[in-house]
Amino acid sequence: MKMKQIFMILGCAVVLLVLNSCTVKTSDKDARKTLAVLCIGDSLTSGYKLVSPGKQSYPSQLGKISQHSLTVTNLGVPGATILKKGDIPYWLSEELDTALSSHPDVIVLLLGTNDTKDCNWQYREQFTEDYIEMVRILQQLPSGPQIFLCSIPPVHNATPSGISNERVAQLTEEVREVARVTGTQFIDVTTSFENMPKLFIDGLHPTASGAGRIAEIVMKAVVKS
Rank of each mutant, 00 (worst) to 15 (best):
G79K: 05
G86Q: 02
I82T: 08
G79L: 05
W91G: 07
T73M: 08
R124C: 05
P59G: 09
D118S: 14
C119L: 07
L110K: 05
G76R: 02
P78H: 11
V72L: 04
G76L: 06
S66E: 06
Q67K: 15
L62H: 06
T81K: 00
L110Y: 02
L109G: 04
Q122D: 13
P53Y: 12
G63E: 06
L62A: 02
T73Q: 14
L44D: 03
G47V: 07
G63C: 03
L70Q: 02
D97Y: 05
K85E: 15
P59Q: 10
K49A: 10
G112R: 03
G86W: 01
N114E: 08
L100N: 09
S52D: 15
L92F: 06
K84P: 02
P89Y: 08
L50W: 12
L96M: 12
L44Q: 11
S60L: 06
L110A: 01
K85P: 10
N120Y: 01
L92Q: 13
I65D: 07
S69N: 14
Y123T: 11
G76K: 04
S93K: 03
D115Q: 09
K49V: 15
W121Y: 12
A80E: 08
S69T: 14
G54S: 11
V72R: 05
L44K: 08
G63R: 02
K84I: 13
V106I: 15
L92C: 06
L111D: 01
H103D: 15
S57Y: 10
S57A: 13
D97A: 10
D87F: 04
G86T: 00
T116N: 04
D118M: 12
S43L: 07
L109M: 12
C39Q: 00
V51W: 14
V108Y: 02
D105S: 12
P53M: 12
S102Y: 12
S57I: 03
T73C: 05
Q67F: 15
C119Y: 07
K55R: 14
D42G: 04
T113S: 14
L75A: 03
